[in-house]
Computed example of a mutant assay.
Amino acid sequence: MTTDIDWPDRYLPGLTDLFVSNETIVANLTSADIWPLLVDITQWEFYYDNVCKITPPSSGPILEKGDRFSFSTFGFPPIQTEVAESVAPSSTTPGRLAWIAKLDGNEDEAIDVYHAWIVEDLSHGRVRIFTQESQIGRPAIQLAAKKPNPIWMGHQDWLDGLVKTAREARATKA
């Protein structure tokens, strides 16, 4: 297992209309602190302001490969989403989560997204949280033209919210 994103050919960065990459490495947290907050879709609204109208999978709120769910973000109506990868982190391998999200509509509305995450423990009590997203469609072209890039900024807020919430949860346990 690698610490790179496993990109489906359709979503290869550089060949799509928009690509963003965000990463943070922080001390005094572990993948075990981060992972439950990321894969439990009911937690997202508590630490990420740019998500709403979440409909969890019928199997429950913990995202597993093949699960279908929807959520709204960046002002889009609820986007239909399917989990492409969900592998919890272990002491020797990083956690991996990825989904394909599609919003159907005319060419001004339709968007096709691949969003992937890697959560891994590093030496010296650090954790790395890495996320990348590749988008196809006219809305992606319009978002890519905005400066600063709202997708990049939104994902950085997501990372920061994950870290803040994980730190608060850890402090509560102590």
Rank of each mutant, 00 (worst) to 15 (best):
L37G: 12
G60F: 02
P36R: 12
V51M: 06
G66I: 07
D33H: 15
C52K: 15
L29A: 08
L63C: 02
F71P: 02
Y47P: 03
N50V: 03
I79T: 09
Y47V: 04
D49C: 01
R68K: 15
V26Q: 03
D67Q: 08
G60K: 06
I62N: 04
S59E: 07
D33W: 09
P61Y: 05
S70C: 10
S58D: 15
P56D: 08
G66Y: 10
I62H: 07
V26M: 09
W44L: 12
C52N: 12
F74E: 06
D40Y: 11
I54C: 05
P78T: 00
S31A: 15
G75E: 07
A27Y: 03
G66V: 09
Y47G: 03
L29D: 03
C52G: 09
P77N: 14
P57E: 02
P77W: 15
V51P: 01
F46W: 13
D33C: 14
W44G: 00
S59I: 05
P78I: 01
E64L: 11
F74M: 14
D49G: 06
A27L: 03
A27R: 04
I34C: 02
S72H: 10
P78E: 07
N28Y: 09
T55I: 13
Q80D: 13
Q43G: 08
I25Q: 01
S58F: 10
E45M: 10
I62G: 01
I54E: 03
S31W: 03
V26I: 10
F74N: 11
S70Q: 12
F46Y: 15
F69N: 00
V39P: 01
T81V: 00
D33F: 12
P61L: 07
S31R: 03
R68Q: 13
S72A: 14
L37V: 12
I34D: 00
D40G: 05
W35R: 09
R68F: 06
I41Y: 04
W44C: 02
V51I: 13
T73N: 05
D49L: 08
Y48D: 03
I54W: 04
I34S: 02
V51N: 03
D49R: 14
E45T: 13
I25M: 00
K53N: 13
D49H: 10
N50K: 14
I34T: 08
Q80K: 15
Y48G: 00
I41F: 09
G60C: 01
P77A: 14
I79E: 05
C52P: 02
D33I: 08
T81Y: 06
W35M: 12
P77Y: 14
W35C: 04
Y47W: 15
Y48P: 00
L37C: 15
N50R: 15
Y47K: 13
P36V: 11
K65N: 04
I79M: 09
F46Q: 15
P56R: 11
S31L: 07
K65W: 01
S70W: 03
N28S: 09
N50A: 08
L29T: 05
T42M: 09
L63S: 04
F69L: 11
R68G: 00
F71A: 06
G66N: 08
L63Y: 02
G66H: 09
Y47M: 08
K65S: 01
F69T: 05
S70R: 13
P77G: 11
K53G: 01
C52L: 11
I41W: 04
P56T: 10
F74P: 06
W35P: 01
A32L: 14
L63P: 01
Q43W: 12
E45D: 13
E64D: 10
F46G: 12
R68C: 08
